[in-house]
Design a protein around this nucleic acid. Structure first.
Length: 471
RNA sequence: GGCGCUAUAGCCAAGUGGCUAAGGCAGGAGCCUGCAAAGCUCUGAUCCCCGGUUCGAAUCCGGGUGGCGCCUCCA
């Protein structure tokens, strides 16, 4: 099956043909670790998690790198606010980020480089740029990239480099030769700065250089490209990725990436979520209310390139949709999986190989669920059928990353042991009443349970209960 | 000011030149059930507006209108 991706630089859907046959190399811009991760970080991580899962399912030996920017103005500001030192602060947010991504079932990147651990590569790339005259040092020791030396500058974002100048909101540093030039290295600016001693002088790297340097450090590529796919949020296209591309081009003579992928934004009630607007929805807060698996399912229900408008109404309807998978899983439960149904596998993979059409993939899952339920209605004791359904659900988990929970835990999320005992006691009482055909008593008990937020289902295998959604 | 994305049923959301426009949620009807729930079946839109290209367009082109984004740190 041919993987197709939308290349956001070419602006079209193209077949994915990797640099090396059967191998795929991906680099995604990760977070700057000065604060908690928000839903936007989750969306990005999920988008590229789907990418690696799909490529692996297709048999590509896939290497995924995602960096942590662990030195930056905002981090330094946070250090002075909290009194924490650099490592303490950044490691805390890295750990939080990773555990929150775990909760979303995002697979860990194979390589997780940090800027502060890549100074060697950064230093050598900046040195090369200085030697070739693509970079210059100003009087205070800052080193800037000279965008005029890169004739291809602008090819990533398609922005005309001169037209916007008058309107640009960028504040121009006095000694910059061109407003578009950007800092590669920031010279030490005083006691409160965090500085590293290198051949470039005391200072710290600019934001853009770390990605280019780390990619060169960890990947080989060929004479034309270093990696196959470079990804990140749509806001990174300019200037971040434009600058990365320029740095790599000028220091190595080849392009940084063969394909570019950018995920859309998460909005809250139709507005961009951003720190300056104060409407950030932190992942930790979402995870304190909703299961990570539900957030994952909800967030991948919209194609990764579209904007995502986060709201609780839609989240609840996503919950109901995911519930159906778990009810099916419950029906086939003690059964061990056999082989995934070939047609189902191909449909699901077909959706995902079409530029990660996860919306379509979810509809394929829905169809599988209702067809399976229908078959089980007709042949409740067909073991081979149950095994195949179990295998199908396992494949959903492999490719899309949900459906691996134990169904009872899923439906009884957030219920304490005490509540559980009480609920099960009441159910027993009700079953007794039912046996005696004392239906008014049975219904009374059911009402009581309903008030506790518990729904009952009488099935051939006994009475099952679920916690009703209260979100 | 420049560049770009987007507009599909009550809601969410695929589709991007051609059989009856996926799927989900909500709603309605039925089967099942002691009654329910769950599950199953049936049930809804001609695709923002105008013009054009075409045998044929939601799908391409032009012009409107609305929403969003990038051009400053941002996933």
């Amino acid at each position: 099956m041919q993987m197709k991706i939308y290349d956001s630089v070419k602006k079209e859907k193209v077949p994915f043909i990797p640099i090396k046959e059967k191998e795929a190399t991906i680099y995604v811009c990760g977070p700057t670790v000065y604060d908690d991760a928000h839903l936007g970080h989750a969306r990005s991580a999920l988008s590229f998690d789907l990418l690696t899962r799909t490529l692996r399912a297709l048999g590509y030996r896939t290497t995924m790198a995602k960096n942590f920017t662990d030195i930056d103005d905002k981090i330094i500001k946070k250090m002075s606010q909290t009194g924490m030192d650099l490592r303490e602060l950044t490691q805390m947010y890295i750990d939080k980020y990773l555990s929150e991504m775990d909760a979303l079932n995002v697979q860990r990147a194979d390589i997780e480089p940090k800027a502060t651990e890549s100074l060697d590569a950064i230093e050598s790339m900046i040195s090369k740029l200085l030697e070739s005259g693509c970079a210059y040092k100003i009087s205070n020791g800052d080193i800037y990239f000279d965008t005029s030396k890169d004739s291809s500058y602008g090819s990533i974002s398609h922005l005309n480099r001169d037209e916007n100048e008058n309107i640009s909101r960028v504040c121009h540093a006095d000694e910059k030769r061109d407003p578009k030039d950007f800092a590669l290295w920031k010279a030490c600016s005083g006691e409160n700065d965090v500085c590293f001693n290198t051949s470039l002088g005391e200072g710290r790297p600019g934001w853009h250089i770390e990605c280019s340097a780390m990619i060169e450090k960890h990947f080989e590529g060929d004479e034309k490209y270093t990696i196959d796919i470079h990804g990140g949020g749509a806001d990174l296209l300019f200037p971040h990725h434009e600058n990365e591309a320029a740095q790599t081009r000028c220091s190595t003579g080849h392009e940084i990436a063969k394909y570019w992928m950018h995920n859309g934004f998460v909005q809250i009630d139709g507005e961009k979520m951003s720190k300056s607007l104060g409407n950030s929805f932190f992942l930790k807060d979402a995870l304190s209310i909703y299961p990570g698996e539900l957030l994952r399912f909800y967030l991948i229900s919209v194609h990764y390139r579209n904007d995502f408008n986060f709201n609780e109404v839609d989240l609840l309807s996503a919950k109901k949709r995911l519930d159906k998978l778990y009810r099916l899983k419950m029906r086939v439960m003690p059964t061990k999986a056999s082989c995934v149904n070939k047609e189902f596998k191909n449909s699901l993979l077909g959706a995902m190989t079409d530029d990660l059409n996860s919306s379509k993939a979810l509809s394929v899952v829905d169809t599988m669920i209702s067809e399976s339920n229908e078959k089980l209605d007709n042949e409740p004791k067909n073991k081979a059928l149950k095994k195949e359904i179990a295998a199908n659900i396992e494949f959903v988990d492999t490719l899309l990353g949900f459906g691996s929970s134990e169904p009872y835990e899923w439906f009884q999320y957030g219920i304490s042991n005490e509540e559980r005992v009480k609920i099960e006691q009441l159910i027993e009482e009700r079953n007794l009443a039912k046996k005696e055909k004392n239906y008014s008593k049975a219904d009374e008990i059911r009402d009581e349970l309903s008030k506790m937020g518990v729904s009952l289902m009488d099935t051939a295998e006994g009475t099952k209960w679920e916690k009703r959604d209260s979100i």
